[in-house]
Design a protein around this nucleic acid. Sequence first.
DNA 1: AGTATTATTGAGTATTCACTCATTAATAGA
DNA 2: TCTATTAATGAGTGAATACTCAATAATACT
Lengths: 191, 191
Amino acid sequence: MARPRSENKRNAILDAATRLFAERGLTAAPTSEISKQAGVAEGTLFTYFKTKDELINALYREIKLELADAIMSDFPRKKSIRTRLRHVWDRYVNWGIANPKQRKVLAQLQVSEVLTKESKDATSAPFVEFQVMIRDAIEQRVFRNDIPAEHISKSLAALVEATIDLTVAKPSKAQEYRDSGFQMFWAGITR
Amino acid sequence: MARPRSENKRNAILDAATRLFAERGLTAAPTSEISKQAGVAEGTLFTYFKTKDELINALYREIKLELADAIMSDFPRKKSIRTRLRHVWDRYVNWGIANPKQRKVLAQLQVSEVLTKESKDATSAPFVEFQVMIRDAIEQRVFRNDIPAEHISKSLAALVEATIDLTVAKPSKAQEYRDSGFQMFWAGITR
DNA sequence: AGTATTATTGAGTATTCACTCATTAATAGA
DNA sequence: TCTATTAATGAGTGAATACTCAATAATACT
């Protein structure tokens, strides 16, 4: 019994924040501007997010979960290790190319000092299935056994990011980079 | 005929900035605090750097050139490709582990919107010898020929950063990570 | 329809901070 | 030693901005 909050407004605020953070950076994007672009009063922003830091943390979760969803939906559980890895690789690269603003914001958030441990923890859950697969692959001797599992998953992410960076700089070579990146990764971890 | 500027003061300001930027982030480190920690008046900071942005750009160049020096000094020009790559790999990893604050600042600067094109360009010069080596290695058929040169150097950097991250989280496995990282990289790019 | 509750608004506030500038101190060269 | 020039100082300033709050509007529930 009361007036409900609007999911639309919340999303509009997060969208505007994404745009402004990507264009100007976290601290150069004032809450006044964010609310203006979202089409709400500045006070409204603060009923949805108690502080600017809380808005930033919420945005981080939102983007990370979108990314997780893009990667892990339709995950081909029954297919070979290589196919599953290639699935993750392609989805991740495609998401990065299709969502440059979100990616830029993520990069800023990850080096900022405002993310709470809870926010970071909350986003790791969707990736556990992937982690398990890596461990299995090592046990099944598909991968070299001298590389720790955490080094493999971290390297996948690092190589994907490198690949996206190159593609953003030279979009015409997208296919080439996507393939050569994966070849490199696969050759690096298998026996 | 005048009072000269002091190299010491300039360095003290850059050092203080490094510490504060690493601990609090670029915008949460006020010039008042930076000058206080550097042991100079706030006005003095502005005789060495006209604006805060200029200070940030100067710091970026300073750190990048230190890194370049750490990597490229004693570069074993006469040795094998593998030895030279391993030299770069080890030096880079060691620098990252030994200079966590500088590394943190670099990460923040690279995603910030304040770096000028000149600053970015100025730091690429020391790495040309490395780039040339990559191209040679491809021509000499030491590396696979389906990976563009720029993808190889970008991947080296990406994998080194991943390796440093892991090492910072688990210092006891430093040696293991350094080795497995390089193995992975080498296996990924050679035939 | 009536009411209690909560959302919405935007002008206002307190604070923070990059940068200035008048004054003083130091130094190089004559 | 004298002087011209520039560095050093730090209180002061104007602008920006995160957040508040009193007034108003919308909505769910009875």
